[in-house]
Design a protein around this nucleic acid. Sequence first.
DNA 1: GCGACAG
DNA 2: ATCTTGTCGC
Length: 227
Amino acid sequence: MAWYQQYPAPDPGLVKTLTAQQNDMRQKVIIQKPDFELKTIAGCDSSFIGENILSVFVLLSWPSLEILEKVYHYDVVELPYIPGFLAFRESPNLLKAYEKLQTKPDLIMVDGHGIAHPRRLGIASQLGVLLNKPTMGVAKKILAGKYEEPGPEKGAITPIIHQHEHIGNVLRTKEKVKPVFVSVGHLMDLENATEIALKTALKHKLPEPTRLADHYAEVFKSDVREA
DNA sequence: GCGACAG
DNA sequence: ATCTTGTCGC
């Protein structure tokens, strides 16, 4: 069910304001080859309980992918979900969870799109700019652009094209399973983002960083419900 | 003008 | 995202 069927129509004034903020922030996004040594990578995701949001960050070692830290922040959520403006709903709480990490990651893998967005500023990119940290996005569903279905074998890649721009890659992380959508968030390039997504996809469709963040979001949610 | 629409 | 039953496949 789409937003216009479950939420009252988004306030035009709000959408206009948020769009302006995105158009301004998108100018700060930097696409480049990684200029860091990848030793730790974090995955983040959020889950909801009514009007509250629970955001998680899981820190992993690279390339061993061992869990070094897992933190979360639980708070009230202010904005409704509006396609294209996901970052404004989840970023505030994600930033608070991020602050709880004892060690900051070299790269963050976000559950959602980076520049594979209508205005080139998905949540992965917005988070990267706000934190001035390398980020990449891995989404389960397409938001903007067109693509061809990649081959059935693990590692098969196909480009996401939007307005004549190559904004991301469709990547088959697991044989015979629906692919994921990879895009640059900030201070990264598509080639490395795609490679990292594939290398961290072990026995599941989702790469370990976001898969584990997703997993712990559910675990912590149970804890919160009991307390 | 008519759809489509991350999590 | 969340709700929510049974079912298919490794």
